[in-house]
Structure formats: structure tokens, C-alpha cells
Deep mutational scan, measured.
Amino acid sequence: SEEEIREAFRVFDKDGNGYISAADLRHVMTNLGEKLTDEEVDEMIREADIDGDGQVNYEDFVQMMTA
């Protein structure tokens, strides 16, 4: 549901600035027990970053979650 997606976005957007940065993503993945290299984190950001601004905004996140 849209509310679940919004809630998930809030979990990833640690600093609440409306964007998921590589640092935000790394933090959440580490908490989930996933040890990722910087390259892996950057690749995840690139794949999710639809508009190419280097971070994942809510619209990018929705597209990723509903793809």
C-alpha cells in the first residue's frame, strides 16, 4: 500500500531530508545485517535513482518498490 511504501521510505531516509543517500542506505542495510561494499551501495543507488541526481527521492523509491 502507499502508506507502507511511505513508511519504508521514512526508515531509509535517516536524516528526514526527503532523499535516501548512499549513507542512509548503507546504514539501513548494515542494521539488517547486510555487509555491503561501497561499490555495492553505490550500484543500488544508481539503479534506484531514476532522475539521475545521485540520491533516491520519494518518487524514485515508489517506482523501485512497485516495479
Rank of each mutant, 00 (worst) to 15 (best):
A23V: 11
S21C: 08
R46P: 01
A22P: 07
D51V: 09
E34A: 15
F9S: 01
E2D: 08
I20Q: 01
A23I: 07
V56P: 00
F61Q: 00
T30D: 07
N17C: 06
G33L: 13
L25S: 02
G33T: 11
A8T: 03
E34L: 14
D51H: 13
R10P: 00
V62E: 01
D51M: 10
S1R: 14
V41M: 10
N57T: 07
A67Y: 01
T66I: 14
L36K: 06
K35G: 13
E34I: 11
I5K: 02
A67T: 15
M44H: 02
G33H: 10
A22N: 06
K35H: 13
R6F: 04
E2R: 13
E40W: 11
I45L: 11
D24T: 06
D42H: 06
F12K: 03
K35N: 11
R10V: 04
D53M: 13
R6K: 05
M65L: 14
N31S: 15
T37G: 05
V11S: 10
E4H: 10
K35W: 12
R46M: 06
E4I: 13
R10C: 04
F9Y: 01
D15G: 07
A48K: 06
D24V: 04
K35C: 12
A67K: 13
V56M: 05
M29E: 00
R6M: 08
R10F: 04
M44V: 04
V11K: 14
G18F: 02
R26I: 11
I5Q: 02
F12V: 04
R26G: 05
V28D: 00
T66V: 11
G33Q: 08
G33F: 15
I50S: 08
R46F: 05
I5G: 01
M44F: 09
G18H: 02
T30S: 12
I5H: 02
V11R: 13
A48H: 09
D42A: 11
R26L: 11
N17L: 08
D24N: 06
K14A: 06
M29V: 08
R10Q: 07
K35D: 06
D15I: 06
H27S: 07
E3P: 04
N17Q: 08
D15T: 09
D53P: 03
E39K: 12
D60S: 15
D42L: 11
D13A: 02
G16R: 06
G18D: 01
S1G: 06
N17A: 06
R10T: 05
D49I: 12
L36C: 07
E2K: 12
E4P: 03
S1N: 09
I5C: 04
D49H: 15
V41S: 02
G52T: 12
E43I: 15
D42K: 06
I50W: 08
M64D: 02
T30C: 12
D38T: 09
L32G: 02
A67I: 08
Q55I: 08
F61Y: 06
Y19E: 03
E4D: 11
L32M: 07
K35R: 11
G18C: 03
D24C: 13
E34V: 14
I45F: 11
V11F: 11
E39L: 10
K14N: 06
D51Y: 12
D49L: 13
Q63W: 07
E47R: 15
G52L: 11
F61N: 00
M65C: 04
R46I: 05
M29Q: 01
D15A: 09
N31M: 14
I20P: 00
A22G: 07
L25P: 00
E3K: 11
V41A: 03
V62M: 09
S21K: 09
G52V: 11
D13M: 02
G16D: 06
R6N: 02
E43A: 15
M65S: 02
A22R: 08
E7N: 10
E34M: 15
I50V: 12
L32P: 00
M64H: 07
T30P: 01
H27F: 13
G16F: 04
D24H: 04
G16V: 02
E34F: 15
R6W: 06
T30L: 15
G54M: 05
R46Q: 07
R10E: 03
N57V: 06
A67S: 12
Y19M: 12
A8E: 03
E2I: 15
A48G: 06
M65K: 02
D42I: 09
E7A: 13
S1V: 11
L36W: 15
T37Q: 04
V62G: 00
D15L: 12
N57H: 09
S1L: 13
M64I: 12
E7W: 05
A23Q: 11
R26A: 10
D15Q: 11
R46Y: 05
G54R: 05
K35F: 12
M44Q: 02
G16W: 03
Y19F: 10
D49F: 11
D38A: 13
L25Q: 00
A22E: 10
V56F: 08
L32I: 10
E43W: 13
E59I: 07
Y58M: 05
K14F: 09
F61C: 04
F9T: 00
I50C: 07
V62K: 03
A67G: 07
G54S: 05
D13P: 00
D38C: 08
A8I: 05
G52D: 12
G54F: 04
D53S: 13
E3D: 12
R6L: 11
K35I: 10
F12Y: 12
M64P: 02
Q63D: 05
G33S: 14
Q63L: 11
V62A: 03
D60P: 15
I20V: 06
E34S: 15
N57P: 10
Q63P: 03
A8R: 06
A22W: 11
V41I: 14
F61K: 00
N17I: 06
D51K: 12
L36A: 04
E39S: 07
E2M: 14
R6S: 02
K14I: 09
